[in-house]
Amino acid sequence: MTGQSGIRLENVSRSFKGRGATVQALDQVSLDCPAGSFTALIGPSGCGKSTMLRLALGLDHADSGAVSIAGITPMEAARAGMTGVAFQDAALMPWRNVEDNIALPLDVLRKSRRDNAGKIASLIELVGLSGFEKALPGELSGGMRQRVAIARSLVTNPQVLFLDEPFGALDQILRRQMNVELQRIWISSRATTLLVTHGIDEAVFLADRVAVMQSKPGRITRIVDIPLMRPRRPDIFTSAEFHRLEDEIAGALDGH
């Protein structure tokens, strides 16, 4: 299966027309995420990170250039059930309880929910929401909702996982915990992962490679390899090597 589940963007451009002005969100951007790799996209607000992710998900179409997942179009890959996604905002359905929200991708893909009942239960446990199976999103805290969204993104056993600032709304403590959890999940699944993030530490901790973006026009200016051994333990956050990588990325963000 691996070797076929990479994400490829080739010379992709996308512009948006606002009120009068045209914004070049992406200008001739190329990115190749090999199968089984973990890539983080980092950059200032408005640099086109989320646009890239939407293009790779098939939610938006490029003005020019090509996007493919495992050699097929993003929509085909989605219909085949290969992908999983968690958005910046949990985007839960307020009328579905935790279990039903996690099961949503199964409903869309017309897969049996009963066959996956065990999977759903284990995901709820994984994200620490045992006991909240029947709770509605309105009854959960922001962090809990975000964890439901993470569980939802994993319910299809995706080979390709897209994460759009999934922990952006969480506090630092919870965020670190979730980072450790996510790494564990990723190591066991080895899904090709594209993470959009604002957090330098999060990017360094999780990714194999960090793609640094700049805005106006949106483009990738540098790719930093993260040669840290896995599994990375939480104490790595304080290591010298970790700080050096953080500084390197911060420098790249400043345009050095």
Binding site: G58, A78, F87, A91, M93, V108, T156
Partner: peptide
């Protein structure tokens, strides 16, 4: 209907009818 909800369904390859049945009618 909340656009983000629709995004989630579309991201799993859901078409017009899935969006209608799962999100839009209820919302």
């Amino acid at each position: 209907t909340d656009a983000r909800m629709i995004d989630v369904i579309r991201a799993y390859g859901g078409g017009r009818w899935s969006i209608l049945a799962l999100a839009q009618m209820r919302s």
